[in-house]
């Protein structure tokens, strides 16, 4: 019991330190460029968390999420271009994204597994195709410029630090909603549909409806991250909806660790940092990114965060048994070999 409280205390301390670090980031990072990178990490972390709802907790791998991301971005960008205000454009974008998520869900939930993957892939490509080919509406691959950032409550988001704080607030809200979701009966029933769909049906749960709700929930945060993205870049073009964009965010989720809260965030950090910071020093950064993924998959097939926890516990228990000379190692190792915790540490 005492170790429980110790770890609980440690956890609160770690969360407090993380919050303080995130909250003061513009002060200690200094250079605008790195503040912008941090904003990017946060907005992609929201995107990855949203996808993780499906990939991790529902067991539904989607390759069309960039489509939803782009629908939100394009809706807002088009309305802004027509002269609507930020509030109207953003609200409409969220509504349109939720509607699109519902359509995605109705079509894709006719199957699971590979079937689901292929249908979402096709839907994502349709969005890409519309963005690319319906040039009179979307500007084709010339894209749409978003001239201004919004100023909610009179606070302008034009500068890098202010935009970072906006991203941070959205990120914390997204993370908070994910924590609630994971702990809620809805989260539990969604994991149930992932692990034992037939048993859930037998128990009287409406598996389809649970999955549908999960897609809507995921679509909502995907749309929000899409809005952050267009305000960050102040530009949107069809590349946003491309298959590679869907694959990239899926990689973030898988490399960080599916069905964990920290995993997608870690994945977003890795990909954004490699793409934007490391690429300045290493020309073949794609190769380095590939090697990192291979290393993660080889040594931590469950993902970076759960894998690190497992290795940490294993080395800790090994050391413990060495020092104490007690033969408790096998028992501990067994415990650590249990399936990864569904709710993260």
């Amino acid at each position: 019991m005492s170790s429980e409280t110790v770890s609980g205390w440690r956890r609160s301390a770690a969360i407090a330190v993380a919050l303080v670090l995130l909250g003061t980031l513009p002060l200690w990072v200094g250079n605008t460029y790195y503040i912008n990178i941090a904003s990017q990490i946060l907005l992609f972390a929201v995107f990855a968390l949203a996808l993780n709802v499906l990939v991790g907790y529902a067991g539904l791998v989607s390759l069309g999420h960039a489509g939803l991301f782009a629908i939100a971005g394009y809706t807002a960008a088009l309305l802004l271009q027509m002269g609507y205000g930020h509030l109207a454009a953003n609200s409409a974008a969220v509504v349109v994204t939720l509607a699109a998520s519902a359509i995605f869900a109705v079509l894709a939930l006719r199957s699971t597994g590979i079937g689901f993957l292929m249908i979402t892939l096709a839907l994502g490509q349709i969005v890409w195709g519309i963005a690319y080919r319906w040039a009179s509406l979307t500007g084709g691959d010339n894209g749409i410029n978003v001239t201004t950032r919004p100023a909610p409550f009179g606070l302008s988001l034009a500068s890098a630090p202010s935009f970072y704080f906006a991203c941070l607030v959205v990120f914390l809200l997204a993370l908070g909603s994910m924590i609630l979701f994971v702990r809620s009966p809805f989260g539990a029933s969604l994991r149930g549909t992932r692990d034992q769909a037939r048993r859930m049906t037998a128990l009287g749960y409406d598996v389809w409806l649970i999955r549908f709700a999960a897609i809507i929930f995921s679509g909502f945060w995907t749309g929000i991250s899409g809005l952050l993205f267009i305000y960050y870049n102040q530009f949107i073009s069809p590349q946003v909806a491309a298959l590679t964009a869907s694959a990239e965010v899926l990689l973030m989720v898988i490399s960080g660790g599916t069905a964990t809260l920290l995993g997608p965030i870690a994945g977003a950090v890795i990909v954004v940092v490699m793409k934007n910071v490391v690429s300045a020093y290493i020309e073949r950064w794609n190769l380095v990114l590939g090697v990192i993924f291979i290393v993660i998959i080889t040594f931590m097939p469950e993902g970076l965060i759960p894998g690190t926890v497992r290795l940490w516990r294993w080395s800790w228990s090994t050391l413990n048994s060495r020092w104490n000379g007690t033969p408790e190692k096998p028992a501990q190792e067994d415990a650590s070999k249990e399936p990864m915790p569904k709710v993260p540490t």
């Binding site: 912008n36 990178i37 990017q40 894209g143 993205f229 870049n233 530009f235 073009s237 590349q239 946003v240 793409k275 934007n276 300045a280």
Partner: peptide, 8 residues
């Protein structure tokens, strides 16, 4: 790609 160009 455009987002990459912007970041760079």
């Amino acid at each position: 790609n455009p987002a990459g160009a912007r970041t760079k």
